[in-house]
Simulated assay, not measured.
Amino acid sequence: MPRWNEDQSHRVCLIPIPRLSDLGQKTRDAGIYIAGALFALGWWFFIDAVIYSSTYEGDKPVSVEFVDWVPGICSSLGMFIINLIDKASLRGDSFAFSGDSTSIVWKARVILFIGFAFMAGGLAGSISVLCVKYVIPDHGDPFTFWGICNVVQNAAIMISAAILWVAQNTESEYSFSI
Results as ranks from 00 to 15, higher is better:
Tyr56Cys: 05
Asn169Gln: 02
Cys74Glu: 04
Ile47Thr: 13
Ala40Thr: 14
Val166Tyr: 00
Tyr174Cys: 06
Ser21Lys: 03
Phe66Cys: 08
Glu6Asn: 08
Ala88Phe: 13
Val62Cys: 00
Ala161Arg: 01
Ala30Asp: 11
Val64Gly: 05
Trp69Leu: 15
Arg19Leu: 12
Leu14His: 15
Gly78Lys: 04
Gly58Met: 03
Thr170Ser: 15
Ile17Trp: 08
Leu112Val: 06
Asp59Phe: 13
Val70Met: 14
His139Val: 07
Gly121Ala: 03
Trp106Asn: 15
Ala49Phe: 02
Ser172Asp: 06
Asp7Leu: 12
Phe39Asp: 03
Ser53Leu: 04
Asn83Asp: 15
Tyr56Ile: 00
Tyr174Gln: 08
Ala37Asp: 02
Trp146Ala: 02
Ser9Asn: 09
Ile81Ala: 04
Asp100Asn: 15
Ile17Ala: 12
Leu112His: 14
Gly140Val: 10
Asp138Cys: 08
Gly24Asp: 02
Asn83Ile: 10
Leu41Ser: 02
Asn150Leu: 07
Ile51Trp: 13
Val67Arg: 12
Leu164Gln: 09
Ala117Gln: 09
Arg11Ala: 11
Ser160Pro: 04
Ser76Ile: 09
Ile34Gln: 03
Gln25Pro: 00
Ser175Tyr: 03
Ser89Val: 15
Ala167Trp: 04
Ile47Trp: 07
Ile51His: 12
Ser103Phe: 07
Lys133Phe: 04
Ile127Pro: 05
Ala108Met: 05
Pro61Glu: 12
Gly121Phe: 09
Ile148Cys: 09
Gly58Pro: 02
Ser76Glu: 01
Leu20Glu: 05
Gly99Trp: 08
Val129Tyr: 02
Ser21Leu: 05
Ser101Thr: 14
Ser76Asn: 00
Gly115Tyr: 02
Arg3Pro: 00
Val64Leu: 12
Ile81Asn: 01
Ser177Pro: 02
Ile136Lys: 11
Gly147Asp: 10
Phe176Trp: 06
Ala40Ile: 15
Phe45Glu: 04
Ser89Lys: 13
Ala40Tyr: 09
Ile73Gln: 09
Asp138Arg: 14
Ser9His: 13
Met79Ser: 15
Asp86Ala: 03
Ala49Arg: 03
Met119Pro: 01
Ala37Glu: 06
Lys60Met: 11
Gly115Asn: 03
Ser75Ile: 04
Phe66Asn: 11
Ile47Phe: 11
Glu57Asp: 13
Pro137Cys: 09
Glu173Arg: 01
Thr144Ser: 12
Ala37Lys: 02
Ser103Gln: 14
Ile163Asp: 02
Asp29Val: 14
Ala156Glu: 06
Pro142Tyr: 03
Ala155Glu: 06
Thr27His: 01
Asp68Arg: 01
Glu65Gly: 05
Arg11Ser: 08
Ser9Gln: 13
Ala88Tyr: 13
Trp69Gln: 09
Gly122Asp: 07
Asn154Thr: 11
Asn150Met: 05
Ser126Pro: 07
Lys107Gln: 10
Ala40Lys: 09
Gln153Asn: 15
Cys149Asn: 01
